[in-house]
Write a protein that binds this DNA or RNA. Structure first.
Lengths: 195, 195, 195, 195
DNA sequence: CATGAATGAGGATTCATTCAT
DNA sequence: GATGAATGAATCCTCATTCAT
């Protein structure tokens, strides 16, 4: 009552977005129907179209939010860190943490890849992704890699390893995202490093 | 090429399987309808059910075929190769070659992951996958890695990198699967190696 | 008759329910397809699922309505009638009248027996039936039957005779429901009566 | 080996007929598919059409067999019985016994009523039924009923009561077909009787 | 803001049946 | 005698979406 905003902060639009994120993440875009989103968000199916033009657009907004969050996490994790390798460790940790900790929006970002999405938002989704990956481009550029290593190969290998964790990682298991980030980077580090 | 009829007509079952593989690979399982498979295979939708109990079972059979092919390729590529690192190079090359060369069955294997498939074949699909990955388990076990590297982390990182190529790799581009395999393994090799 | 529109258009839900009732009654549940209901109700097949979860549930609602009507008829017919045998005459007449006069809902009640319906509504359908038959239980309890006659046997024999009329009764023929009710009850009356 | 006929007596045709009878009885005609019959009979679906022109014809043959059996049972039960009421007791007992004892063919006879069957065999089915019911016509004609009772009403009431047992009778319950037959006839007897 | 009603297209699957072998 | 392959039509149902209110 004191703060009506807090209670209402879960406004229609927001509730829908959260429900969509959770379901896209859990079931995938295709198997998530507008009806399911409407059930989860406590809103009638028709109402969703008051806030979003289409299911496709809904996915786009979920992804936008996901990349935004990720970018923020990575930025925060690397602020005031100057050592290049340490920056990478932290960026990866933030990436993995986001994926498993705050699944709602971020998982969708890794699961629903634009190459499979036929809707009109495809290009916008690719742009969002590129923008986010640019963070890693920059961090990796700063690494003192030896000349034989292509920065792009390095980056793609690293991102691939991390994305793949969705397939096998058990959050209740023995590894923490922190450890995994260290390991994955280390696996690539010494050989690639010029030191 | 010599006799297109042989390849295309073959038996009904085979034609369906091939069409399903191609479409599952291109569009994904969910967006591939039985109707589409029927169009592509030149068979009426109902006929598919004479050969396969369900769409789910059809996916399972496609995956089985895919893993079978992959296993064969990897086995052939490593036969009579004794150097452990060379064995890994070749296995990875075979894996990537399979993924991009002979997409029909093998791509489905990497794209349609069991963690998202709710059908009754899920467990069978997991079993197939494990059996295939066991090939890599064995090859990686033989590597003279230094003590600090976990074989399992090594394997998952490598497989993740390779799977991720589906997202960014352009077969018409500058890299060949052969080069990519070398690079990816090398990226992990020296640091991890005990030599 | 005065205003066909009112009767026919009413609300969507109602139109569907009526069409379903008519068709279930005429063709039976199995041979009545959603398509046929949609044609008869002037509504598209998909729309039916806005109002009813499934065909099974539609049957349940038709039966509920049928039993409700029947109960009302029987109750009205026996109100203020105190002679026990007269009460039974009237109840049976109401039952038969309902079956042939107002076929739409009530016939389904007698034709679609729960013992053959495999759907999830089966139990609910049994409950509805029992509740209705309880009316007869009470009416028959009040009869001064001689000790050798089991009330339950009496009731089942009577209901069976009436249900069976669906097989042979020709509404255009020589008997009226009124006469049939008298006859059927009389056939059982004197022998069973203690008088 | 001694008597090949016995072993082969379950010839294709016969096996199909039995399976169809069982399934028509248990699930009803509509819900019994040719595939199910083929599974139960251990014969391929296509093969059924070697022996029977259609599903409709299959039903007709099952009914024919059912009525044949019933007629035989009723005839046997009444042979050498001269007392008219005793004849009826026995006929009813045979009828009920047939229904519950030897369900396979006979139940179909009571469950699948021609008024609902739209196929071309309808008329033939009606003829079979009439022929069987004629047995009861004759037995009932011989009863010394008092003048006020219509023989036809008597018969239909009795047959209705017996048919209805399918709805409520529990073969594992307290009543035997023998008892039920006595009761049902007695319920009608004394009042109708001229004695 | 949000809903209730409605739709058209398409979803997977089952059906009775045919026919060459 | 019996089958394997194939079909066309129909099955129930779900989908994303629209729109008047």
């Amino acid at each position: 009552m004191i703060n009506k905003k807090v209670a209402t902060s879960s406004t229609g639009r927001e509730r829908i977005l959260k429900s969509a994120a959770r379901l896209f993440g859990e079931l995938g875009y295709d198997r998530t129907s507008i009806r399911k989103i409407s059930l989860e968000s406590g809103m009638k199916a028709g109402s969703i179209y008051y806030f979003f033009k289409s299911k496709d657009e809904l996915l786009l907004e979920v992804q936008a939010r996901g990349f935004e969050l990720m970018s923020k996490y990575v930025a925060e994790a690397t602020t005031n860190v100057t050592d290049p390798w340490e920056r990478l460790y932290r960026a990866c940790e933030a990436h993995l943490n986001g994926m498993f900790d705050n699944r709602t929006f971020i998982e969708v970002t890794v699961r629903e890849l634009p190459d499979r999405h036929p809707g009109p938002s495809r290009r916008a989704m690719i742009r969002l992704r590129s923008k986010y990956e640019a963070l890693f481009v920059r961090i990796i550029e700063d690494l003192p890699l030896n000349g034989s290593v292509d920065h792009s190969d390095f980056r793609l290998t690293l991102l691939g390893s991390m994305a793949w964790t969705l397939v096998w990682y058990d959050p209740a298991g023995r590894h923490t995202p922190h450890e995994m980030a260290r390991k994955m980077v280390d696996l690539l580090r010494y050989q690639s490093s010029a030191e």
